[in-house]
């Protein structure tokens, strides 16, 4: 169980910048953008971030992943989360195997 000094320094640097990004919201005043367009922008944050995280993997990828993504979206419209995950993973693995 060894931790080298240079690794410790690098990990500390990585941890500090991550902490800074996660605490940054504390410096947004609590009454900032409670109504109007800015409030709408804040409310859209979850959809905007989550979409940006996954869109390239579905839209700028092999057709197999785009097709698996479409199946996942259909499943997510009605089904509970564990089924959606199972269908998504099975569709991606199956289509990739088919496409070789």
């Amino acid at each position: 169980m060894n931790v080298s000094p240079d690794a410790l320094l690098a990990i500390a640097a990585m941890a500090l910048v991550t902490l800074a990004t996660r605490l940054a919201g504390l410096f947004v005043p609590a009454n900032f953008a409670r109504t109007g367009r800015l409030a709408a922008a804040f409310a859209a944050m979850p959809v905007a971030v989550l979409t940006a995280l996954i869109a390239p993997a579905l839209l700028a990828s092999a057709w197999t992943d785009a097709a698996a993504g479409a199946l996942t979206i259909l499943a997510a419209w009605r089904l509970p989360l564990p089924l959606v995950v199972g269908i998504g993973a099975a569709a991606a693995a199956g289509l990739r195997a088919l496409a070789g």
Binding site: A76, V84, A93
Partner: peptide, 25 residues
């Protein structure tokens, strides 16, 4: 990737995104 494990998170995020579908905009 061969087991589709990377799609588990894509599926989770798709599910969460659709949960907001009644929201304005």
């Amino acid at each position: 990737r061969a087991y589709g494990f990377d799609f588990a998170f894509i599926a989770i995020f798709v599910f969460l995104i659709l949960g907001f579908r009644k929201q304005g905009g």
